[in-house]
Structures are given as C-alpha cells and as structure tokens.
Computed example of a mutant assay.
Amino acid sequence: MTAAELARKIRARERCLGYWVMLDAPVATERLARLGYDYVAIDGQHGLIGDAGLLSNLIAVDAGGRSVGIVRVASGDPAVIGRALDFGAGGVIVPLVDSPEDAARAVSAARYPAGGRRSYGPMRSMLRIGPTPAEADESVLVLAMIETPGGLAAIEEICAVPGLDGVYVGPSDLCLAVGGRFPNDPEVAGVFEAALERIRTAAANASIAAGIHNATGEQAARRLAEGFTFATVASDLVHLEQAAAAHLKAARGES
C-alpha cells in the first residue's frame, strides 16, 4: 500500500487496521510491516525511539512493503511534525489536541505554503510521495488525538477543522480525562463509553475518520463494529512480554 492509498482509505472512512511500534528495533518493525496491516504507527511520544530511530523504523516499514509508516509525534510543534514527514511518514498522529485551534495548527504544519506552513525540504519523503507540494499534501494524513478533557469538550469543533483527516482516541488518557483513577477504571466505564460514542458521532457528522487504540485484536474488531473506522492493535513491547510470559508458563507446565 502507498501513502496515497492509505490517505484515500482513511478519508473515505474505509476500515483500516494498524499496529503500534514502541521499540527502536527496525528488523522487528520490518517483519511487522510484512503482515498485512494497513499502517504501522511509530510512537515518537511515549515510545523508546529518538529521531534516528524514527527514520530507521520508517525505512523498515517501507522495506516490509505492505504497510504505510505513520508517526505519533511528540507534540504539535510544527518543527516536530515537519521532521517526521520529511523522514518519510505517511501521516502524523498529534497528541494532546485540546481545541480546534490546536487541530488547525497541526493541519497547517503538515501542509505546504499554499495551504499551510510546512517548510519545503522533503529529503527522504520525496522517495515515497514525490517532491511536488500538492502531491505531498494529498498523500499526508493529519490525525488529532482526543485524550484530554478539553479535547472531548470541543470534539465537534475539532472535527469541523478544515483539512483534518480524522481523530484518534488515546483510551488510557481519555479514561483519566473522564474521571478514571487509572486506565480502564471500571467505575467510569459508562462515562467512558458515552465519550467514545460522542467522538464517533462527531467524526461521522463531519465526514472524517475516527480511530482508536486497542489492547487486542478482538477489542479492535468490537470498536470497528461500533462505528470506528480505523483501529490500532497493541504494541510490539506489550506483545513481546506477553508471548515470553506465555512460553515461560508453558515450559514450566503451569496451567
């Protein structure tokens, strides 16, 4: 899949599935990118990955040949967004979007001067989407994370921001934002589910995509059935630990 194809699918609200990478392990990332996920998201905010790692892992996704690499950037700073795109990311997930102004700034940072403030210096990205600004703008996704009280309160206005391709739920922080004591706090389960429904509805009304992070593939399937249009599954670090623990348990003969 190309970046342009992924952008078309996301914008058309077609179902897409992604995987999450937190480890700076390009060989592993390359293997993950061969499995058939529509995209592989490299975590530049909470992941254990620096600038050089972002570049190496994006190259690894391309080498896998089946997925598009996108980056959850560390912040909405235009320099941070532009750098991820120059490295070859097919899109950015921007954290901590509290307002339509935050979302508009993120969109502007990802678009070249005719419609934004991205500085022209495509470097590696020209290998994937071409050096023409209009072509690059058409191929690059901008997704705003909804994970804060402010972001939830302004969800309808955020979804209406011109040029925003979608919103992406960070469920751990959103659970805290609606009053949870910790992620997945059962005491706020009802409020949390109502928040998800509000986000899905706002995105659908604005004709933009709605995505969410998930702990398991089963959970991702459920969220898609509920109306989310794209979903990411777990992460390499979590799955590595889970697989190792399961094998250890089996080797010990424990039930």
Score class of each variant (00 low, 15 high):
T2N: 14
R8A: 12
C16L: 06
Y19S: 00
M22I: 05
L23N: 08
V27R: 09
T29C: 12
L32T: 14
L32Y: 10
A33F: 04
A33P: 01
A33R: 10
Y39D: 01
V40H: 02
A41L: 13
G47E: 04
L48G: 01
I49S: 00
G50Y: 05
D51F: 01
N57K: 06
V61T: 12
V68A: 07
V71M: 04
R72Y: 02
S75N: 12
S75I: 07
D77W: 08
A79D: 13
A79R: 15
A84R: 09
D86R: 11
I93H: 02
V94K: 07
L96Q: 08
V97W: 00
A106H: 10
V107D: 11
S108M: 03
A109C: 07
A114G: 05
G116V: 00
L127N: 08
L127T: 11
P131T: 09
P133R: 08
P133E: 03
E135P: 09
D137Q: 05
E138K: 13
E147P: 01
P149V: 07
A153V: 12
I155K: 08
E156N: 06
E157N: 03
E157T: 07
C159V: 03
P162L: 12
P162G: 12
G163S: 15
G163Q: 07
V167R: 02
S172T: 11
S172A: 14
L174V: 11
V178A: 03
G179M: 14
D185V: 04
P186K: 07
E187A: 10
A189I: 05
F192Y: 15
F192I: 00
R200M: 13
A203M: 07
A206D: 15
I208R: 06
G211L: 08
G211H: 03
I212M: 06
G217R: 12
A221F: 00
R223V: 03
G227V: 04
G227T: 02
F230D: 04
T232A: 10
D236R: 05
V238D: 01
K249G: 05
K249Y: 00
A250K: 15
A251H: 11
G253N: 13
E254A: 15
S255L: 12
S255C: 09
